[in-house]
Amino acid sequence: MHVDEKTVRRIASLARLKVTDAEAKSLEGELSGILDWVTMLDEVDTKGVEPMTSVEATSLRLREDKVTDGNIGADVTRNAPLKEDNFFVVPKVVE
């Protein structure tokens, strides 16, 4: 399966990664190689087999509806490059 440069650029943009022309070229080959390798799985007959969504055969444990956390605004924003009154401050984003 061949991944072309356009697809590489699209994947990079979705992941918010900056990719140089040289990197894009090399990623074309790498991603194509990875997909070719994974494509081997197509040889397995999975008819009637439900897709596996977790490795454990148990189900989700339910938590009680109790407030047990919060009021740590200063901690939450501690690593933020910019903050004000416990708000995160980010470059303007308006749609």
Binding site: F87, F88, V89, V90, P91, K92, V93, V94
Partner: peptide
Amino acid sequence: SIHDQHPDYSYVDL
């Protein structure tokens, strides 16, 4: 996101 607090920045409350 609050956009009207600052001309260049948006404020984020989670």
